[in-house]
Write a protein that binds this DNA or RNA. Structure first.
Length: 702
DNA sequence: GAGCACTGC
């Protein structure tokens, strides 16, 4: 047992450091440290952040909020919480939490820190992500997704379990991190026993400092600490003239690098799946033709909807004496890191979400990236040795045209869910809420209006009983409303399945080389009254076929999607039980089985309804947008009224996932929205008026 | 008659 102590060469040296346990027993487990602990300790002490340890601890002692800037490789994510622990700053029964924008990061970082502390994961160190809580009463350091900490705040707005909250990767400005910053700015001033550390890659540091210090009544001094990263230099090249066609330029650049530059993998950033698959095909065809005596190469596409085994291939070693050429979306900018990349090709574009509050539509648009993004992409070339980055735009463009940082998500999103969350967190005055970047007032108004129509907020903007329930669910407000009322329509089991299916990526596969077969497979599940009902059929069939991946494959269904829908469904079912919402079904033989489901749909989605006009097009109610049924629909006729799940703006305006409803139901379940006095003149209004008269007659006769 | 940047609860 004592062997490792005596023979360990690092031990004597360690004992000189007063902040490292001078006893050879691990204070968390009571056991002697393992060999691995000392090995990892040596690595830890070589991290750049280690030199800033005393400075950091001093600043945290003096200040409530500290901003820490550190590039990749500085070690901040793993070491900063440990500094705090070692110093014994943690109060009894309190914890440290460190947020991450992504689940995998929360999981892998917590495992690393558990190893460094020589403790089993889930005891002193753990993580919490959706569907998985690997913590215990012993846990004092927890890594969590930012969304998960936000959920916790909803039941404990002071986040009173924690005495240190670290928001990591704050520069990414996710919705959840932005909301957390907004509430923590107040909480940190209210709670004597709370410290806050904001960790970021260089760019926005000053902005975080300003934001947290600024307050008319309680200004704070927010110090900033800078930690160098550990990356290799990357030489950046620009094109002398702007490129007309970035795809052609990209292909040309790949070929030039492959022909002329020493070995080392190539990473090309493109915007989407189709573009990537096309380019891979072109490269496979062109390289052997254009490169004399080409070295071996392997072209690898990389995007999120690619099956996991195909994604994994980018991590395999390159062909012997050759190179990998990876053609990726933004997934390779932050989510996945591929060592061995030496050359980055950056055309300077990505698909970005934008929200237009006027038409209430979120859409994806190919847009120029920001300077910060371009720098991040370039950095991908310097992970293992010095690299090169080829920007397919001019230096002038970089300096003059690109914006500094990508607009935070909160400025590009529909905020219905954000507003519901903030209300639940007790924020009364949303218009004056201190957002780091305040969203457009119109976007907030749209969100308030939607929540008011759904009955989540009353006319004073107060959260209603229904709204409180809705906020409990990790769903868009329309979906949670529909789910909560579904027991009244005797179909909560079915709506649970539909909501789960709507919450995951599209489950229907349609490979380019088997489109007919895929369509035929889909036809077997199709319900002619609506796509929502088709989704229900698919879910049933998946369960009846014992969740078999092969069955999914044969039926052109995405197994990953269905499995995840099933997960979501279980989570929602548990919440329904917790909230005493009964799980009920209408008898399947009854004529009302599908009618009830469609009525429940109307209760959540009455604002997403389209009316068939005499010219054969659909017009969305109130917004009066001319739309077409998305070609993926399964209706066998064109119903007068449909609800839709999504408004898709591509080559045309489409409504996707549509189900037939009756006009009467709109008047019955959403009379406040369909009040005819405030309804825009048109065919939809005339149809509704006819229905009103028809409805009133029998009543008068009674 | 067509798509699906990326995350997260």
């Amino acid at each position: 047992m004592g062997k490792s102590e005596k023979t360990n060469p690092y031990l004597a040296h360690l004992l000189e450091d007063n902040h490292i346990e001078s006893s050879s027993l691990n204070k968390y487990t009571g056991k002697p440290y393992s060999e691995k602990y000392y090995e990892l300790l040596k690595v830890r002490k070589a991290l750049p952040i280690y030199d800033k340890r005393e400075e950091f601890l001093q600043l945290v002692k003096e200040s409530k909020v500290v901003v820490l800037v550190g590039d990749t490789g500085s070690g901040k994510t793993t070491q900063v919480p440990q500094f705090f622990l070692e110093e014994g700053h943690l109060e009894k029964n309190k914890m440290i939490v460190c947020t991450q924008p992504r689940r995998v990061a929360a999981m892998s970082v917590s495992q690393r820190v558990a190893d460094e502390l020589d403790v089993p994961l889930g005891e002193a160190v753990g993580y919490t992500i959706r569907f998985e809580d690997v913590t215990s009463p012993k846990t004092i350091l927890k890594y969590a997704t930012d969304g998960m900490l936000l959920r916790e705040a909803m039941s404990d707005p002071q986040l009173s379990r924690y005495s240190l909250i670290i928001l990591d990767e704050a520069h990414e400005r996710t919705l959840a991190t932005d909301i957390l910053m907004g509430i923590l700015k107040t909480v940190v001033r209210q709670r004597e026993d709370l410290k806050l550390v904001i960790m970021s890659a260089t760019l926005d540091a000053g902005k975080f400092q300003d934001y947290f210090s600024r307050d008319p009544e309680h200004p704070l001094t927010v110090p900033l600490i800078n930690v160098p990263g550990r990356v290799y230099p990357v030489e950046v090249y620009y094109t002398p003239e702007p490129e007309k066609d970035y795809l052609e330029a990209a292909i040309r650049t790949v070929i030039q690098i492959h022909a002329n530059e020493p070995l080392g993998d190539i990473l090309l950033f493109l915007t989407g799946e189709e573009e990537i698959e096309e380019t891979c095909k072109r490269l496979n065809h062109d390289i052997p033709l254009l490169v004399k005596d080409s070295k071996p190469f392997r072209i690898l596409p990389l995007y999120s909807s690619l099956p996991p085994n195909a994604q994994q291939r980018v991590f395999e070693p390159p062909p012997s004496n050759g190179r990998k050429i990876i053609v990726a979306t933004n997934i390779a900018e932050t989510s996945l890191t591929i060592d061995g990349v030496v050359y980055v090709i950056d055309p300077g574009f990505s698909k970005q979400k934008i929200y237009d509050p006027r038409v209430r539509v979120e859409s994806l648009l190919v847009s120029p990236i920001s300077k910060a993004s371009a720098k991040q992409r370039a950095g991908r070339a310097g992970r293992t040795r010095p690299g090169k980055c080829f920007r397919l735009f001019t230096e002038q463009t970089f300096k003059k045209d690109l914006i500094e940082t990508t607009y935070p998500e909160i400025l590009r999103s529909n905020l219905a869910n954000v507003v519901l969350t903030l209300k639940k967190l007790g924020v009364d005055d949303l218009v004056h809420f201190d957002f780091m970047d305040p969203p457009a007032p119109e976007t907030l108004m749209r969100a308030l209006e939607l929540l008011n129509y759904l009955g989540a907020l009353d006319d004073e903007g107060e959260l209603t009983q229904l709204g409180k329930l809705m906020a409990e669910f990790p769903l868009d407000p329309q979906l949670s409303k529909m789910l909560i009322v579904s027991p009244q329509f005797q179909c909560s089991n079915e709506i649970l399945s539909i909501v789960a299916m709507l919450s995951v990526p599209n489950c229907f596969l349609r490979p380019r080389d088997a489109q007919k077969k895929a369509d035929a497979a889909k036809a077997r599940f199709t319900h002619s009254e609506g796509d929502h009902l088709t989704l229900l059929n698919v879910y049933y069939a998946y369960k009846h076929n014992e969740e078999d991946p092969n069955w999914c494959y044969q039926n052109y269904l995405n197994y990953r999607s269905l499995k995840s829908a099933d997960n979501v469904r279980s989570q929602l079912e548990a919440m329904m039980n917790k909230l005493s919402l009964p799980l009920v079904s209408t008898d399947f033989q009854s004529a009302e089985f599908y009618v009830n489901i469609r009525k429940a749909l109307v209760n959540g989605f009455f604002m997403q309804v389209a009316h068939l006009e005499s010219n054969g097009y659909y017009l969305t109610v109130k917004d009066n947008q001319v739309v077409s049924l998305h070609p993926s629909h399964g209706l066998d006729h064109k119903p007068t009224w449909v609800v839709y799940n999504e408004f898709v703006l591509t080559s045309r305006k489409y409504i996707r996932t549509v189900t037939e409803i009756k006009g009467e139901w709109l008047l019955e379940y959403a009379s406040h929205y369909y009040e005819l006095a405030n309804f825009p003149v048109g065919e939809a209004k005339r149809d509704l008026e006819k229905l009103t008269i028809k409805n009133k007659k029998p009543r008068k006769q009674k």
